[in-house]
Simulated scan of single mutants.
Amino acid sequence: METNMDLMRIIQGKFARLSKGQKLIAEYILKHYDKAAFMTAAKLGISVGVSESTVVRFANQLGYEGYPELQKALQELIKNKLTTAQRIELASDYVEPNNALRGVLKSDIENIRATMEKISYSDFEGTVNSILKAKKIYIVGLRSSAALADFLGFYLNLILDNVKVVSYGISDIFEQVLNISEGDCVIGIGFPRYAVRTVETLNFAKSRGADVIAITDSLLSPLAAKADYALIAESNMASFVDSLVAPLSVINALIVAVGLKEKEKISKTFNELEHIWEDYQIYSYKKGTDVNKF
């Protein structure tokens, strides 16, 4: 499947050659692909009145190894198009209301597992090297991705001294990135539905000759399209909430990798910070205090 939009055309093109049961599945998906994307093979079979094995054979008939691959293609097709209200409506098909904790944790575990399998280790190393050699590092992540951008910026600022987190504020986004130039590194973080300003910032950075890094969910993402290095982290949604667990894990790894390259510098920085934290009582206990008392 070259693109996920091809899926609907493939179903239509193969419809005449499908069995009676498979045609029922095809008709349901063509009409209700947004709901089918979050159904198990068994639940989809029940919805159309066929067996689970018929659903699996239908996926094979379309060229997929199994139903999970077909389901993934359906999710990719819709995840950037669903409104928040539509996500809430579909939540009951994806997460059991009385067992949301287990459902969401299982989903996040799967996101991390899939990320480990799909992420490019060469792009990861390229990202680390780009950060270390950059004259200035800009980090842009808006809306729900703002938390990730702030987290990455907070720790990189402790390791390096040339980091700027770009965010909504008094000044416009482009006023904050006006001086981007060759030799700089711009890290864009974005997941469906992608913030337009993040994409535009990466386009601007690319036009200025800066290294562009994308932390996003797919190589088909508009952020990845302009990136020199793309770190792909699964973010399959659990209801109306974007899953940012796998992206945060990738960011953690990025911080650690940069820190290990600057081990001597960060050791000195954190030794100085420990004294400052103790002198100004930044935390609720002093260095050497038995924390079990609190």
Rank of each mutant, 00 (worst) to 15 (best):
T3P: 06
M8C: 14
A16L: 11
Q22N: 10
K35I: 13
M39R: 06
V48Y: 00
E52S: 07
V55R: 01
R57D: 04
A59E: 05
G63W: 08
Y64L: 08
G66T: 07
P68T: 09
K72Q: 12
I78M: 04
T83L: 09
E89W: 04
E89R: 14
D93V: 12
D93Y: 15
A100D: 07
L105I: 13
E117V: 13
Y121S: 08
F124E: 02
F124A: 05
N129A: 08
N129Q: 11
I137M: 00
Y138E: 00
Y138V: 03
A146T: 09
L152W: 00
G153S: 06
I170E: 15
I170G: 15
F174A: 01
S181D: 15
S181L: 07
G183S: 07
G188Y: 04
F191I: 05
V196T: 15
E200Y: 12
A210Y: 02
I215M: 06
T216D: 03
A225Q: 14
A230Y: 01
S235P: 10
D242Y: 12
N252I: 01
V256Y: 09
V258M: 08
E262R: 15
N271C: 12
E272R: 14
I276S: 04
I276Y: 11
D279L: 06
Y280P: 00
K286A: 11
G288L: 05
G288V: 07
